[in-house]
Design a protein around this nucleic acid. Structure first.
Lengths: 282, 282
DNA sequence: GTAAGTTACGAGCGACGTAAAAATG
DNA sequence: CATTTTTACGTCGCTCGTAACTTAC
């Protein structure tokens, strides 16, 4: 039986036209390649080249062999890529969330429960979450609403309540609570990569000019240094505290108070069970 | 890059269940196989087996790898078989004929003209001839009638006239010529492998009992030794002479006088041109 | 104790590179 | 004379088999 190495060589010879060029491309001496091709011909019991003293070219057999060789090599490459994807799947849990804050707790929990497994997380829109869950791109997704569907396991994770973060001298800073629309039209600081919140802000405050900040650290500095209103939430405050020069006022709209749900395919529930158990106990 | 040898080994291990069995099937020591599989895992950068001290079994990766390996090996085998068929095609001319006698001359002619090429011949029925020509199983066929068709080249080869071969004391042995039906009902000697003649005899002499003889030499001996009528032809007589104790009487039916035609696909005509030229000159 | 798998070690075969030869333009 | 291919030859490395060790039934 011939070997893949020889098929690769055959294809390279076909592509480059001469043994010398091919040998160079293959990081091989030219005589070695010459012998290897002779051996391939022996093993196939068929001549593959038209030989003319100091010139060589594929004959009809060689052309056909090359085409088949390409196929075999392509499938071999497929084997490698697919097997590595499969392996990776088994050693990683991909979690996608509609918002960043749930991951702050969930990712460390998963890492603690599955120490051998890499936890990869990403923020995506609701549609992408469900599509990715369906296509097994994500083993678990965090949604801002429950989903009852066959073959989907859905369990409550926790709440998040949104606040305006206002400087003390803001006209509305004394209020007990405020609707979105009360600040609509002003200029606000906004962090990017906040998932569904972004869409919500734009929808509820269409006249507001948002200064989008990509970096978390830079965003924090801007909040401290400027008098521009921004958003925060109970989860953020609990974790990072509140900026000293800020007053946090709850947002009264119902949409500003979300409950997050963890979703996974039913056939993944068993694998994730330790996580769901721990969730229930806390 | 892994090698086909390793894929073959993986499949064998999967099929036999243990390394030891597989090693035996592969004519390899068990430690060598163990190492080879470890190397495959290294090269794929993926574990393929569930190892339990003195037991080994494919894991999920291994199962998938095995399926891909099967595909790759099947295609590799395809490469071998198809390339050999192609090669054979280039080094042989397959000629099929409706009757044996034309081949007596044609086969040596082809061998002389194409000394590098193997001439393979076979006797087939008319339908099989045309089908085989169409499917490129035969590069040339000899038919007892012309065929005008697109992409088919057709040229006359020669005639054959059928004779009854009768013992001198046969009641009809003095006739100048005889129709088939004049001997219908008698018992006759008949050689097998005579192509379309066989069908013709049965059709024109439905009441005759034919003693079929497979072997040419045995047939000749029977003709000499017995008083049973048989067939011969001008071509046979010219080549092998007539048995001394026989009188040959032409058969008067029009079907007993055939003209043979050489047919080939138009795209093969160029390749066979030297043959057709020589045919024309003789 | 037998059967299976891994590790260790030494040997042989095969593939490689260098060198040389032949042929072409 | 440069380029390309094939053949010759010596070396190195890889894979093999044997042997030893471990574990399980």
């Amino acid at each position: 039986m011939f070997e893949l190495k020889q098929l690769k060589q055959l294809v390279t010879v076909a592509e480059s036209g001469t043994l010398s060029k091919a040998a160079e491309l293959l990081h091989l001496s030219q005589p070695a390649l010459s012998r290897s091709m002779q051996k391939l011909e022996e093993e196939l019991q068929v001549s593959l080249f038209e030989r003319q003293k100091n010139k060589i070219s594929l004959n009809q057999n060689g052309e056909m062999a090359m085409e088949y060789a390409r196929k075999v090599l392509r499938q071999s490459q497929d084997l490698i890529t697919h097997i590595r994807v499969l392996d990776r799947r088994q050693h990683t849990i991909s979690v996608a969330s509609c918002a960043p804050t749930p991951l702050w707790e969930i990712k460390p929990m998963l890492s603690a429960i599955f120490p051998e497994i890499t936890i990869s997380t990403v923020i995506k829109g609701k549609n992408q979450l469900l599509q990715g869950l369906n296509e097994d791109t994500y083993q678990m997704v965090i949604m801002p609403e429950p989903l009852i569907a066959p073959d989907i396991y859905c369990t409550k994770y926790g709440d998040e309540h949104l606040y305006f973060s206002l400087p003390p001298d803001h006209p509305l800073s004394g209020c007990k609570e405020l609707p979105f629309k009360s600040l609509d039209g002003e200029t606000m600081l906004l962090l990017s990569q906040i998932g569904f919140w972004h869409d919500l802000h734009i929808q509820k405050m269409p006249n507001t000019h948002f200064l989008i900040q990509e970096e978390l650290f830079a965003f924090g500095e801007l909040v401290k240094a400027s008098a521009l209103p921004s958003f925060t939430s109970d989860i953020i405050i609990k974790r990072a505290g509140s900026a000293s020069n800020r007053i946090n006022i709850p947002i009264s709209d119902i949409e500003a108070n979300v409950t997050y749900y963890c979703l996974c395919k039913s056939n993944q529930k068993k694998k994730l069970l330790p996580f769901f158990e721990k969730l229930k106990n806390e």
